[in-house]
Nucleic acid binder design. Structure first.
Length: 904
RNA sequence: GGGCGAUUAGCUCAGUUGGUUAGAGCGUCUGUUUUACACACAGGAUGUCGCAGGUUCGAGUCCUGCAUCGCCCACCA
């Protein structure tokens, strides 16, 4: 047996963490097992980018998941947490391309598709998966035997199956549309991947001459003069009295010089700018719509990388769009057609990954009409899926109500290639003719006659099947092997609200579309917990470029994983953003240390019988030896456990940490262990006191385990609460039933007594401090009991009170003294033989207190004299006020006596 | 333009259905080797709960309006 007293005075996390994580994984205790005799519990991880590294956001998110799954195991459920990584199409392709450019001086296009993918895979295998190792350091109890990557063969079949099925069901089509084009990554993006940023730009006012009325000009405002070359009309509002008359006429486009019509369209806002709009159907989504209505030519003047092409004219061809803008302005000025340039702030859509403004661009892309939109909305509104906090439902519903088709094709190679083949030699193949276009998971049987579509799928069009793709769907054997029947739907999803559209909503639609059964069987999860965003102390989002993102592994190395987990959870109220600083982790580390030392203290008291089960510990308690402090601490333990249960039900993790912290630090260590000290030398009480200590420590370890898995596992074993070869996660934290069976529940009187003792100790210490003997341990004190029962309480607890107060003696007296004094819940306490005390200060202090009491007396009297209060407030409140008033007056009377005895 | 959130001690935040004298951690001040823990212990200081109304016997808590900050959504060039 290992004695804790032989171990270091402070908790040393790193060895403990390594030891137990290894033991857990080796034992297979994180494995999800299908066990019909138990309730199933499941979570799928939001798959981190395979090339990513652990951030504080991951720490928060994964700690919550770990807490939930560990708690489920403790509660006897058969639990699984399915881990995995996301190939993260555009993000990874971008990284690999920049690696190629930097290290190999080549690029994706030069290498060709096959070679590029090969290199990307090597790169992924080398750099990817780091994050998985980092999650292990955090203590994540994932079932690693089920690790899934979105490009795995099995998972990929699921992704393609979903595509093919939707195609067959008529939800997927190909078309030439305006899309968000990223000129850096050379791919289309979905609307969700475009981030709007306010930009300081210029609004240029210029004039176009009317063809039919030379010398007459229309003034036009634009922020994008570089698209003039693509103008195919000028539009005015038909109801605009100023310009209506020009509709049907023409203006000269300045360059390349050409006649373009003046058209009338309601879209034009009479009040904005000059009221005249240049229409560039190829380079603006709204203009494209106008173009459709008026049958205008679409003149695309840019290359895919947003340089100008030959249609822009010799002056511009080859220029970047921003250089072209400057040049266009210069040219307008030279031609005398630039009227004004104004500073202007507008929102510009940026490519999330590319970091440059997206270019609206007409191109052939694959689109998806979302399936099961109404059902997805109903699933959340009906409560089949619950959102925590609930307010995100509104955001979700609003998005579904305004949903638009999803551009799912990407012009990149890193991803799932679209499973569509075109017959060789057929021009403009008909999507609906299987002779010309083949759509299937496995491809055509005669591949030599077909060419596969070069595009790949949006990453989110692969991760949207995550909750069931990770369970083997659509392969029946795999689904059986992985227990999909048992584990699906998953219990909880923990994610950030920033991907509510990208991922959460789409997973719900996918589940409803692809799986059989009723809503309750099809939905991917029953609860969604949205975390807050971790920010720095200035409230800024953590980012690499700001350098304000601490490395969690560094924090773990310095404070321990448990300290980090506890610190983060302690300050993470439901769904609120979190301002993070290391001080929070210090709190967690300190708490670990407190826990460690309390156990060490218990261990130093030595063996006191069997502690290997709740039953045996309770069996060591001799009820006749329990005093009020024993009963109070047990009552507080029960209360803490009830609160913890309740807060789990509401996903109030910070409340759980606060309950546990307050119980353990204040009630148990701050009071109970201290009063234990004097009772341990009482042979008749000793065993019972140690049994109560064991009970509290054991239950605290169990309750803390989901938050602090490593230290609790270590202490669980070194304290001998658990057996070798088994783990704390397999022990239920329930105990209230057993306590109740002991008849230990009638504790309100004990709690009141303990409160009195605490009050006596605190006031007595304060009195000593005021008299300058706060640190002396040999004070002689007197107690004038407030009533007979107080004398009894004092006598029953005299030893512990002397010790806690730091008194050599506390004598009961029956008359006032003229020594410095304090009012306590047990009566008036005097500090004897306190020569040199500044009685003037004492008097001032008492008078101040008297004034305070007098204020309270007045306000309470006023309340009680208010007939409305007495008649309308509940009796308990009125009685409480009366009692307080009486107590207040009693105190005032006591203080009056003291002041009198001091001669004030 | 619409929606959502926040506003409580110097700092970061709790405060569940309205109930008496508003809490925690950090920081700060004064002390301390006291049967575990200085990552600790003891004692102290610090708040017109954003502003203005309203409901109520009673409001940090409920209602209305306003202000400031932040986020999301929205095709005004």
């Amino acid at each position: 047996m290992l004695f804790m007293s032989d171990i270091s005075k402070s908790y040393n996390p790193s060895e403990v963490e390594e030891k137990w994580y290894g033991a857990w994984v080796e034992s297979g205790c994180f494995k999800g097992r299908v066990d019909p005799s138990k309730e199933a519990y499941s979570i799928v991880i939001p798959p981190p980018n395979v090339t990513g590294v652990l951030t504080m956001g991951h720490v928060l998110n994964n700690t919550i998941q770990d807490i939930l799954v560990r708690r489920a195991r403790q509660n006897g459920k058969s639990a699984v947490w399915i881990p995995g990584t996301d190939h993260a199409g555009v993000a990874t392709q971008t990284k690999v391309e920049s690696y190629l450019r930097k290290e190999k001086h080549t690029g994706a296009r030069e290498l060709g598709r096959e070679k590029f993918i090969e290199i990307a895979k090597q790169w992924r295998d080398k750099h990817g998966g780091i994050i998985i190792e980092q999650l292990k350091k955090l203590g994540a109890s994932c079932d690693w035997s089920r690790l899934v990557h979105t490009l795995d063969a099995d998972y990929s079949r699921g992704v393609l199956t979903a595509f093919v099925e939707l195609f067959r069901r008529g939800y997927i089509y190909r078309g030439k549309r305006m899309v968000n084009w990223c000129p850096v990554n050379l791919t289309a993006l979905s609307d969700e991947e475009v981030v709007m940023r306010p930009q300081k730009s210029k609004l240029y006012r210029m004039k176009y001459e009317l063809v039919e009325e030379p010398g007459t000009y229309l003034e036009i405002s634009t922020t994008r003069p570089e698209t003039i070359m693509g103008d195919s009309a000028v539009a005015v509002n038909p109801n605009d009295g100023r310009y209506g008359k020009y509709i049907g006429k023409h203006v000269w486009r300045p360059f390349p010089k050409e006649k373009i019509p003046v058209i009338g369209d309601d879209y034009v806002d009479v009040k904005f700018g000059t009221g005249v709009l240049k229409v560039t159907p190829a380079h603006d989504a709204a203009d494209f719509e106008i173009g459709l209505r008026h049958n205008l030519p679409v003149i695309d003047v840019m290359n895919p990388d947003a340089t100008m092409n030959s249609l822009a004219g010799d002056d511009f061809c080859g220029l970047d769009r921003f250089a072209a803008r400057e040049k266009a302005v210069e040219k307008l000025a030279e031609m005398g057609q630039l009227v004004a340039v104004e500073d202007y702030e507008n929102n510009v859509g940026f490519s999330e990954r590319g970091g440059v403004p997206i270019e609206p661009r007409l191109s052939d892309q694959w689109f998806m009409r979302y399936p099961k939109v109404a059902e997805a909305k109903a699933a959340v509104e009906s409560g089949a899926i619950k959102f925590w906090p609930k307010r995100w439902e509104k955001t979700y519903v609003h998005w579904l109500d305004n949903i638009r088709d999803w551009c799912i094709s990407r012009q990149i190679w890193w991803g799932h290639r679209i499973p569509v083949w075109y017959r060789k030699g057929v021009e403009n193949p008909d999507i609906n003719n299987p002779e010309e276009v083949h759509v299937s998971v496995d491809g055509p049987s005669d591949p030599e006659n077909w060419v596969q579509d070069p595009d790949s799928l949006d990453t989110w069009a692969s991760s949207w099947i995550w909750p069931f793709g990770t369970m083997g769907w659509p392969n029946p054997e795999k689904m059986k092997e992985l227990g999909m029947d048992y584990f699906y739907p998953t219990s909880d999803l923990v994610t950030g609200p920033d991907i509510i559209f990208f991922w959460v909503a789409r997973m719900i639609m996918a589940g409803l579309e692809f799986l059989p059964g009723d809503t309750a069987e099809k939905i991917p999860f029953k609860n969604v917990y949205f975390t807050g965003i971790i920010r720095d102390m200035q409230g800024r989002k953590m980012s690499k470029s700001l350098g304000n993102s601490p490395d969690p592994l560094d924090i773990i190395a310095r404070y321990g994983a448990d300290g980090l987990r506890f610190g983060v959870m302690n300050c993470a109220p439901q769904g609120q953003d979190i301002l993070f600083s290391e001080e929070r982790v210090e709190l967690g580390r300190n708490f670990c240390n407190k826990l460690w030392n309390a156990c060490r203290f218990r261990q130093m008291a030595g063996d006191a019988g069997d502690r290997s089960s709740l039953k045996s510990i309770i069996g060591r308690i001799n009820p006749s030896k329990l005093d009020s402090d024993d009963l109070s601490i047990i009552a507080n333990l029960v209360k803490c456990s009830d609160d913890v249960d309740k807060d789990y039900g509401n996903y109030q993790f910070n409340a759980i940490t606060q309950s546990l912290y307050a119980f353990f630090w204040n009630d148990f260590c701050g009071w109970y262990l201290e009063v234990s000290k004097s009772r341990l030398s009482d042979e008749s009480a000793r065993d019972t006191v140690l049994a109560v200590q064991d009970l509290c420590l054991r239950q605290t370890l169990l309750m803390l385990h989901p938050f602090m898995p490593f230290i609790t596992e270590e202490l669980w074993h070194s304290m001998e609460y658990g057996r070798d070869g088994d783990f704390i996660q397999n022990e239920s934290p329930a105990f209230v039933g057993e306590i109740g069976a002991m008849g230990l529940s009638a504790t309100s009187e004990a709690a009141a007594t303990t409160e009195k003792l605490k009050d006596f100790v605190t006031k007595s210490r304060a009195l000593k401090a005021q008299c300058g003997v706060g640190t002396k341990r040999d004070s002689k004190m007197l107690l004038l009991p407030a009533e007979a029962s107080c004398a009894d309480i004092f006598k029953a607890n005299a030893e512990k009170l002397k010790k806690l107060v730091g008194a050599d003696s506390i004598r009961l007296v029956d008359a006032e003294s003229d020594s410095p004094a304090a009012l306590t819940a047990l009566g008036t306490v005097y500090l004897e033989a306190s020569a040199g005390v500044d009685m003037g200060a004492e008097i001032a202090r008492l008078q101040k207190e008297l004034a305070k009491l007098s204020g309270f007396e007045k306000s309470t009297e006023a309340r009680l004299n208010n007939a409305a209060f007495v008649s309308k407030a509940p009796a308990s409140v009125v009685d409480g006020a009366k009692r307080q008033l009486a107590e207040c007056r009693l105190k005032m009377e006591e203080i009056g006596k003291l002041l009198k005895s001091y001669g004030a």
